[in-house]
Simulated assay, not measured.
Amino acid sequence: MDLTGLGIGTWNIGEDPKKKKDEIAAIRYGLDNGIKIIDTAEMYGEGKSETLVGQAIKGYDRSQMYLISKFYPYHATPELERKSLEASLKRLGTDYLDLYLLHWRGSHRLSDTIRGLEDLKKEGLIRQWGVSNFDTPDMKELFSVPGGQACFANEDLYNLDHRGVEYDLLPWQEKNKVNFIGYSPFNSGKGNTIRITHNLKTVARDHDATPHQIMLAWALRSGKILSIPKSGKVSHMKENIAAQEIKLNDDELRLINSDFPQPTHKLPLDMI
């Protein structure tokens, strides 16, 4: 399947026992209302996010869900990938992942990483594999390694404040048929939020929406990427789901671009 539309991000979810009930309710509301994709990682709370996701999806039809997780770069050898995956599957309460990502580049050879992932794929423990926090030169290098062209997706930071991927990475991935997953559409992972400008408020008012819904609608506007906002409450999940219906016209996009300009040259890859 193509990875497009809205998914559920889980960074910082599952770490506070007091929030557990709300977080599980939010994930279940998403699943009950058409969202199929959940993105997590062994790094998130050192497994706590995966554990919470496992509790949230219990009782749901696994075949109707698409689960993504990630492994640390220092686990990027065939033996350690397998160990990481087995631990992730146990926490999630499933026997396979739909997509398994190298969380960011490390010191292990990409050829070893790919070999391990292809073995896991052959065994049916993962359906597809990919990478995260890779820039265009990284992707080109990956494609030059035997088996590298089997990469299914790359997940990078993408929001109004961080548009650098539009310059060369997004076009390269589209040309080479690598799905793009954009994380932190509200920039929340950096501990600061995208500035709420007058233009954002104007566009939001015209759509009877919140500025955050406009940010998410903007991230989803092409219909070609997957965006994975975190939602720790049902109310946030409802807002995110509603944002899918917002279509921004050319005048509104021009207003937004005037505050958050498109990149006109290559920028270093932003990461959180």
Score class of each variant (00 low, 15 high):
M1K: 15
L6S: 09
G7H: 14
T10I: 13
N12Y: 12
N12C: 10
N12R: 15
G14I: 08
D16I: 14
K20R: 14
E23A: 07
Y29Q: 10
L31T: 09
L31Y: 09
D32W: 09
D32T: 09
I35M: 14
I37Y: 15
T40H: 12
A41Q: 05
E42P: 05
E42L: 04
M43K: 07
Y44C: 09
Y44S: 08
G47V: 09
G47I: 06
K48C: 07
S49R: 10
E50R: 13
T51F: 11
V53N: 14
G54P: 14
G54Y: 11
G54D: 13
Q55T: 15
K58Q: 15
G59P: 10
G59I: 12
D61R: 13
D61E: 15
S63H: 14
S63T: 14
L67S: 13
L67Y: 13
K70E: 09
F71L: 05
Y72H: 06
Y72S: 05
H75P: 01
E79W: 02
K83F: 04
S84Y: 06
A87V: 07
A87C: 04
K90M: 10
K90V: 07
R91K: 15
L92T: 11
G93P: 14
Y96P: 13
R105M: 11
S107A: 06
H108C: 02
R109P: 04
S111E: 15
D112S: 06
R115G: 03
R115N: 11
R115L: 13
L120E: 08
K122H: 10
E123N: 11
G124M: 15
L125K: 15
I126E: 07
I126F: 10
Q128A: 15
S132A: 13
D138Y: 05
D138W: 04
E141V: 08
S144P: 02
S144H: 08
S144D: 12
P146D: 08
G147Y: 11
G148A: 09
Q149I: 13
F152S: 14
F152D: 09
A153D: 08
E155H: 05
E155L: 07
D156L: 06
L157E: 07
N159H: 07
H162C: 05
R163F: 01
R163A: 02
L170E: 02
L170D: 02
L170I: 09
P171Y: 02
P171L: 05
W172R: 04
N179E: 15
N179Q: 15
F180M: 08
I181Y: 05
G182W: 03
Y183D: 04
N187K: 09
N187Q: 10
N192V: 06
N192A: 04
T193K: 10
I194T: 03
R195F: 02
L200T: 00
A204T: 00
A204R: 00
A204F: 00
Q213M: 03
I214E: 01
W218H: 01
S222F: 01
S222W: 02
G223Q: 07
K224N: 08
K224R: 12
I225Y: 08
L226E: 10
S227K: 02
I228Q: 11
V234L: 06
S235A: 13
S235E: 11
K238T: 03
K238P: 03
A242N: 01
Q244P: 02
I246W: 01
E252K: 00
L255R: 01
I256F: 00
I256T: 00
S258F: 00
P261D: 01
P261M: 01
P263S: 02
H265G: 00
K266Q: 03
L267N: 03
L267Q: 06
L269F: 04
I272C: 06
